[in-house]
Design a protein around this nucleic acid. Structure first.
Length: 403
DNA sequence: TCTGGGGTCCTAGGACCC
DNA sequence: TCTGGGGTCCTAGGACCC
């Protein structure tokens, strides 16, 4: 019943501590030890992307509105962030991880899973020593603090890494998974957020150990498949599968591409909203073409002043990668929404879905008919590669930037 | 005093088809 | 002339993650 290879997997989870802030401290050492917050403008509508541990002492955490963070910690140093530089450091760390095992699965800029099973022989060291070497290499070569968790599965490794923060390491020996997890509050389980946490609380489930007492099938009846999966995780039964990452561009298992913007103040101007849709359509189209993909569904998203959010999506008769299709489809969905409500608009988003590799030769008829538009968009893409995205915009997008 | 932006996955109802 | 029923696609919304 039990898959034989699951038993003695060794999975490591590597997580960079307060990543954006740590990079800023490398660039400017005088920031060390101070309350530093990387994120949006505290006098605008931004949120916190990363907070130093000194700032966290004031209750600041990522995702919090920057304005609130400033009230909690008025002396905090707010930085907008240098995302290009973060990417460089991220690549450097991933390159280091790749020297220890080819089985590296990058899950975000600052996190990766490693499958260390069978690496002991290669490195003539135990899993613990290998993890220590990784920790040391990251510190020595980049100066960045990282935390590492090691265990028989992904979940255990991830929670162990979180428990080891900051700049620590925790190893959960085989067979000790359930005992390690049991005393932790259920909110520590990846996949259980604030909403489902309340559902579990109603059932008297407060700790991961409480969750592990439930038969997965019983929990399925009450909380669906998600509940059953969480119950299995709580018992420490967890697939130790690590997916190999492709190159730096990531594997193209990309499911969707989207862009959205929040206005600095809500707008009721339909012309401005249409211009934003045009701008976002161009940006999405460009990224799709750059990735060599096609889409078959377009989605429009509006968030109103009251923060209520609506989405509309439309399947296309044929997959493609044309910006004007995104724009026309999105506008077709926009108009009824604008007509149906007088409430001002806070956010506009445009996205596409169901990505596949662009076929070698697209349908001939389609190509002839749309060749001109495509050629136009591709030459605009080239201009943008040279001079930046804003350098080439359709006239209808220009208004987006105004006011 | 409010609540970013980029994603993933899941659910659920209705249409449509066999 | 009653209420089958399963599979798949489409659409809307929501939870969650970093």
């Amino acid at each position: 019943m039990e898959p034989p290879q699951t038993r003695n997997k060794i999975i490591a989870h590597v997580d960079l501590d307060a990543f954006f802030v740590s990079v800023e401290e490398l660039l400017n050492p005088s920031l060390r030890g101070k309350p530093v917050i990387v994120g949006g403008d505290p006098s605008g509508r931004g949120v916190v992307s990363a907070a130093s541990y000194a700032a966290r002492k004031f209750g600041v955490h990522s995702g919090m509105p920057s304005s609130q963070a400033r009230r909690l910690c008025p002396r905090a140093i707010f930085l907008r962030g240098s995302h290009g530089i973060y990417s460089q450091y991220s690549h450097q760390v991933m390159e280091i991880l790749g020297r220890f095992t080819p089985a590296v699965e990058q899950v975000s800029v600052d996190e990766a899973y490693l499958d260390l099973t069978g690496c002991q022989r290669l490195h003539k060291a135990g899993a613990v020593e290998i993890a220590q070497k990784i920790h040391h290499a990251i510190q020595a070569e980049t100066g960045l603090p990282a935390s590492i968790g090691v265990g028989a599965g992904r979940i255990v490794a991830k929670i162990a890494a979180n428990s080891a923060k900051p700049n620590g390491m925790m190893v959960i020996n085989p067979g000790r998974e359930a005992a390690f997890l049991a005393p932790l509050p259920i909110g520590r389980m990846p996949g259980i957020g604030p909403v489902s946490q309340r559902e579990y609380m109603k059932l008297g489930i407060r700790k991961i150990g409480d969750l592990s007492q439930f038969e997965p099938e019983l929990l399925r009846q009450v909380l669906g498949n998600h509940g059953a999966a969480m119950a299995r995780r709580a018992k420490g039964e967890d697939e130790g599968h690590v997916e190999f990452s492709a190159g730096a561009e990531g594997r193209s298992g990309l499911q969707s591409v989207s862009r959205e913007v929040t206005y600095s103040t809500d707008t009721g101007d339909p012309e401005r909203i249409r211009a934003t849709v045009s701008y976002l359509s161009e940006s999405v189209g460009r990224r799709v073409r750059r990735a060599g993909l096609v889409f078959d569904t377009v989605t429009l998203k509006l968030r109103r002043a009251s923060f209520s959010t609506v989405t509309r999506s439309r399947a296309l008769p044929k997959a493609g990668d044309d910006t004007s299709v995104i724009y026309r489809t999105a506008c077709g969905m926009l108009e009824p929404l604008l007509a149906g409500s007088r409430e001002r608009v806070r956010l506009v988003g445009v996205g596409v879905r169901a990505m596949e590799k662009r076929p070698e030769q697209m349908d001939l008829f389609l190509m002839q008919r749309e060749a001109r538009m495509e050629a136009l968009h591709r030459s605009m893409d080239r201009a943008r590669d040279k001079y930046g995205f804003e350098s080439a915009l359709m006239a209808r997008s220009i208004l987006h930037g105004r006011g």
